[in-house]
Amino acid sequence: MTTRQQIRGTRTGSTGAHARPGAHERPEPDRIVPPSGTSLRRLLRRTNPLAALGALAWLVVVGMPLYYLVTVSLRTRADYLTAGPLAPPTSPTLDNYRMVLTGEFGRYFVNTAIVTVVSIVAVLALALPAAYAIVRGRHPLIRIGFSMMLLGLAIPSQAVIVPIYLLITRMHMYDSLAGIILPTVAFLLPVAVLVLTSTLREIPGELYEALAIDGGGPMEALRTLVLPLSRPGLITVAVYVAVNAWNGFLFPLVLTQSQDQRVLTMGLWSLQGQYTSNVPALMAAMTLSVLPVLLFYAIGRRRLVSGLTAGFGK
């Protein structure tokens, strides 16, 4: 998907500056204006001041709330109330974090981690063999099932929460982490199958044939060919599932109740009730809840980005 796309630079229109790919490496034969002018003129031609200004404006729109989130979490409550919402944290304190971590927050964190890890394993375990069968199998049911999944991509989870609530209560899984995991996995499956299918299509058929000549069956192929060669796809899917499961709100909202089974997103909501007058503590809890994803983002940005748009990035 996105990772695979050639990073072919483009000359963009009114919005984009004119930094062409490799503009500094090769001469520019297609320039109409001879590249003689002063360096200022050159610079003006290559950059687009309007676009840069727009980007900076957007930086304020995105950055200001994030600045608020982090700085307020580092300030005392009194400081927040007197010095105003945007004052810099002149004497930063970690007291808010300490306070949040001594509460129930750790429990929510662990619950969320369980939901996330189990969802990743379950989605991969279900989607990889399915993708392998879709790419290599010939049974007519496979095609029907694949079409069902592609159409299923359009089912909005909000619209089916009532029957899912019915199913989960009937399975006696209401108010359990398993109850959250079951529908979460289902709604992440279509994209996972889609991504893995397109990854597996790139394995040349000759490889399977060579393996078969050596007497290997499908199990052998899955282990020695599919698993190692589909790694980029597997990572993309894992990231996609991880972010979605970590941030999931709808299923925990409808399917859990007790504090023991609370995940982070629900926990934040309950903390908001608890800390109505303590905004810094709430911001600390929110920062903590976003931190794992942010750390992950800092390490493997490209993987994360391709995982987030998995299935749609084309």
């Binding site: 279900l126 069968a133 099932g145 069902m148 999944m149 499908p218």
Partner: peptide
């Protein structure tokens, strides 16, 4: 060579059928 049968895809299809379709 052998091709994977429908059984390989069945768990995912059945799962999706039950919890989404």
């Amino acid at each position: 060579h052998q091709r994977p049968g429908v059984i390989w895809a069945l768990p995912a299809f059945a799962y999706f059928l039950v919890f989404a379709v």
